[in-house]
């Protein structure tokens, strides 16, 4: 079975929603069990008392990345068929900066806030409501952003191409950097005063 299964037609499209639900359950479980339903645990990454976000995020990224590269190499999956989010330089950076501010204020990102909602965190519910309002506002004032939203389209650009590295070298460096960060995080955690939450 060569993946990706649905685009290849191995699994009919009608199974889409069922698969979405199952994947979502796995996603939600992994997030909640790692502690992403607590905004104060998430914020620990930024103040140095708990680096759980950093650990989970980078472990997940390198796990999935390695899986994709190995499956592609073995011919079990056609990585060129995977969807690559187009890279619009200015809107990606501006959007990221705005999201960072929202992160620092709200203590959640959309996925984690839904986990918080699931276990009854009222602040997560308010955050999710804010998401709806924010997206509604953006859509209404879209003409103001339209130029920035559509400028600097580099298409489905790959980071290693932009840096002039080969895929393997970049992936290897990413793993090494991630391991370095994990050890640094443990070191910082020991120095920083524990916060009770």
């Amino acid at each position: 079975m060569t993946g990706p299964l649905i685009p290849m037609g191995v699994i009919p499209e009608t199974w889409n929603n069922v698969i979405a639900l199952i994947i979502g359950i796995g996603f939600g479980f992994a997030l909640e069990a790692s502690g992403f339903s607590s905004s104060r645990k998430i914020m620990g990454t930024f103040f140095g008392y708990d680096f759980v976000v950093l650990r989970v995020f980078f472990t997940a990224a390198i796990t999935a990345m390695s899986g994709i590269i190995y499956f592609d190499f073995m011919g079990w999956m056609d990585a060129s068929m995977l969807y690559i989010n187009p890279y619009y330089v200015s809107s990606a950076i501006t959007g990221g900066l705005v999201m960072g501010a929202g992160f620092a204020l709200g203590g959640f990102c959309p996925g984690t806030s839904f986990c918080g909602v699931a276990i009854g965190k009222i602040d997560a519910m308010i955050f999710s409501a804010g998401l709806f309002v924010g997206i509604f506002i953006f859509s209404e004032i879209y003409p103001l952003f339209e130029k920035m939203y559509n400028s600097g389209n580099l298409g489905g650009a790959m980071i290693y191409d932009m840096l002039g590295l080969s895929k393997g070298v970049f992936a290897f460096l990413l793993i090494i950097v991630a391991i370095g960060m994990f050890y640094a995080a443990t070191f910082v955690e020991k120095k920083v005063k524990k916060v009770d939450y």
Partner: peptide, 8 residues
């Protein structure tokens, strides 16, 4: 925060 995250 949710509002900003939504826009971003």
């Amino acid at each position: 925060g949710g509002l900003l995250f939504g826009i971003g």
